[in-house]
Design a protein around this nucleic acid. Structure first.
Lengths: 212, 212
DNA sequence: TGACTCATGTAAGCGGTTACATGATTTG
DNA sequence: CAAATCATGTAACCGCTTACATGAGTCA
């Protein structure tokens, strides 16, 4: 019952090897992680900002791209500075660390555009812990599964609302962000819908058991 | 035009701090990464397998949960063995590394069920590089955006087909997997739909420019 | 015979998180 | 006056990837 035959399995093909490698590596010094490009992209929209401010902007992207930890952002900005992709203006402060303002440099703009225009696009990375649990549903109870699913649906609804609110607050000039926001709203709608279907399937399984 | 005011931004609230921490940590030795639970879960369905075989199974979950690198899987199995959550049977082979077969232990089953039943469910992790690029659309051309989007839609369609095929091949006894598969199919449908909407938005922007 | 599958492993390094530390400024 | 915000930083650690290495069996 809880045992799988392996007939459905083909041989183990190692895919996505060269796909993930950046095609344009050869013409740049070395590839940057995607977070770096996210930061550069943000800097093309914001003007001079501190790491702290930038983090707030980064959090607006969390609906389709996770936002990195604070320490990671500061680290990334220093790396970009070392590569002269951003310019750092420091403001001395008595008795505590300098305040650092960042702007994107021309080189940074060029590198960013190059990435946008020529870099290989990989598939999205998804780690869906709710789906994972449902997948292993045979090891738990339906009541627990329902609990997990409804909790997730509530979260998705909140995200959807936040995203809609954010879109309303945004300047209409930011067209691309609003297209992405629509995408996100649709995505959450699909998730909510999927949860409802899953709950219905659980109901169906329960009543089957009742009949037999 | 490409400059944001920061009015839409609230203060930087540090959320999801205790949310990510595992509530049930205190009653176990120490928490395991989610990959470990995925492996344990797989072992509740497969019986005795080698690391190599297990990897093939793990790849069936790649539609909603990324599949780890080969080396990581072997590492994970050894860790689970060290914690006595899986049992390792070695088969000596002349002139090369032992062949290792794994089965889940009773302790492993208990730990896995405990995780399923009591652990806090975090939100899914999503890094959507296509949406990221679209978000920064003001820095590239519409033709490039269209290229990226259509490429992604093709990929999503392929995934959808693979997933449907997989579902067809699967034993009907595996109900939960098939519920998750349906979820996945719907997810890819939503993605394809979102891409089409985005393409339509780009068209609309182009014709606006033509009119003005 | 050569390509592919089966099967396991090591080493280096990176991206990222968690936790901690500090202190001025603003706000209720 | 206390709490939250602004603002930067360090150290330890972990999950995971990449790249490499090995070798037997199978099949065209």
């Amino acid at each position: 019952m809880a045992h799988c035959s392996s007939e459905a399995l083909g041989p183990l093909v190692e895919r996505h090897k060269e796909e993930t490698a950046d095609v344009a590596d050869d013409r740049r010094e070395s590839a940057l992680p995607s977070t770096a490009y996210a930061v550069l992209g943000l800097l093309t929209m914001t003007g001079e900002v501190t790491g702290y401010e930038l983090r707030k902007w980064a959090m607006n992207m969390r609906y389709f791209y996770w936002s990195p930890a604070q320490s990671q952002l500061y680290l990334e900005l220093r790396r970009l500075r070392d590569r002269a992709l951003v310019y750092e203006r420091t403001e001395a402060q008595p008795g505590r660390p300098d305040k650092r303002y960042y702007t994107i440099t021309d080189t940074g703009r060029r590198v960013f555009r190059d990435w946008l225009d020529h870099s290989e696009v990989g598939p999205p990375l998804l780690k869906h812990s709710v789906a994972l649990r449902l997948f292993f549903g045979h090891q738990t109870s339906h009541s627990r599964l329902r609990e997990v699913l409804t909790q997730y649906a509530e979260w998705a609804r909140r995200q959807q609302q936040e995203l809609s609110a954010l879109k309303g607050d945004m300047l209409p000039a930011l067209r691309y962000s609003s297209i992405v926001a629509d995408w996100g709203v649709g995505y959450f709608a699909a998730e909510i819908n999927a949860v409802e279907s899953a709950l219905a399937s659980l109901d169906a399984m329960d009543s089957e058991v009742g009949e037999s």
